[in-house]
């Protein structure tokens, strides 16, 4: 039981990296972005492939992962500036699926659907207890950083842009700069989640990077209240625990996956129904 509790705490902490930073983009910034896993794919493969397959030093591999995230952030910024909001939403999914397709097919480098085994545990994270301690500590630091970012000048610029790009531009807010910073923070959140998760499993499996994982993040942000820091934190704790708790129901293995999909679909729909007035609030008028 003690081990299981540590496992759940670690899972919540690892998910918080992505969820809280995604909340900054989708929740606070109202940027219709569904390509969060594109960051995960590029970041984690740019880290794991050199580290495990070509025996690069840890810090060099990490640097490459960070560079990958920055490139994806720049690409998403460019797309978001050129497409209408809903068009960007769809194309962000397209980018995710495109990267996933490359990873699944470039078998000589990524080993395709087999994934990459033998990922080492990160420093100071060898045992479950130390892993939980370190990941909770880093998660808390990441949340403090995001809280300051959200409450500070950048958060106000993001909010202003979400209400209207022209009024924000008249205040001197650079849309391209704000989007790039928001996507970069969001990308680093995804990278942190994946670094810890795949190091925890000691396996990089592309099945963890499919679109339903993205819907899980959307569900948490909508259920917690888009843009609400505390709401998203509470929703992460509840929904990650619920997701793990489903394993304890006495169901046939082939039923668990489909029932989980149906349950999460119903939760997402209910969350949107309840928060339909606030997920995308109407523009203010004078």
């Amino acid at each position: 039981m003690g081990f299981y509790l540590l496992h759940i705490i670690s899972l919540i902490a690892m998910n918080l990296f992505t969820v809280m930073s995604y909340n900054l983009v989708f929740g606070k910034g109202k940027i219709l972005h569904f390509g969060q896993l594109a960051f995960s794919i590029i970041g984690i493969y740019a880290f794991c492939v050199p580290l495990v397959r070509y025996q690069w030093p840890l810090w060099s591999a990490l640097l490459l992962g960070c560079l990958g995230v920055l490139l994806v952030a720049a690409f998403f910024t460019w797309l978001s500036l050129h497409l209408e909001a809903d068009g960007f939403g769809v194309m962000s999914i397209a980018v995710h699926l495109m990267f996933l397709s490359v990873v699944l097919n470039w078998q000589g480098v990524t080993r395709g659907a087999l994934g990459i085994p033998g990922i080492p545990r990160l420093p100071y994270m060898a045992s479950l207890e130390s892993f939980t301690l370190v990941v909770v500590l880093f998660s808390a630091l990441w949340m403090i950083f995001l809280w300051y970012v959200g409450k500070g000048a950048f958060g106000r610029m993001l909010s202003a842009l979400s209400e209207g790009q022209w009024p924000a531009a008249s205040l001197g807010i650079s849309r391209s700069m704000v989007h790039f910073v928001a996507f970069t923070i969001s990308g680093f959140g995804a990278l942190l989640s994946n670094l810890t998760w795949h190091s925890y499993l000691r396996l990089l499996s592309p099945s963890d990077l499919q679109f339903p994982a993205m819907i899980f993040y959307v569900m948490i942000v909508v259920a917690g209240g888009a843009g609400s820091f505390r709401g998203c934190f509470i929703a992460t704790v509840i929904l990650v625990t619920l997701k793990e708790g489903l394993r304890f129901l006495n169901l046939a293995p082939n039923l668990v996956g489909p029932l989980q999909l149906i349950l999460f679909g119903v939760i997402l729909f209910t969350a949107v129904w309840v928060r339909r007035e606030t997920v995308f609030p109407k523009q203010r008028v004078v």
Binding site: L32, F34, A85, D86, G89, P212, I215, V218, M219, V222, L255, G257, P258, L259, Q260, L261, I262, F264, G265, V266, L268, F269, V272, R276, E277, V279, F280, P281, K282
Partner: peptide
């Protein structure tokens, strides 16, 4: 939803896609 905000159906239909995916598998 669509009269409240035209982006809302994007999220509600994502929810529907999950429900239908689960039903198709079952």
């Amino acid at each position: 939803f669509y009269k409240l905000h035209r982006f809302l159906p994007l999220v509600t239909t994502i929810a529907l896609s999950l429900i239908l995916d689960g039903m198709i598998l079952l």
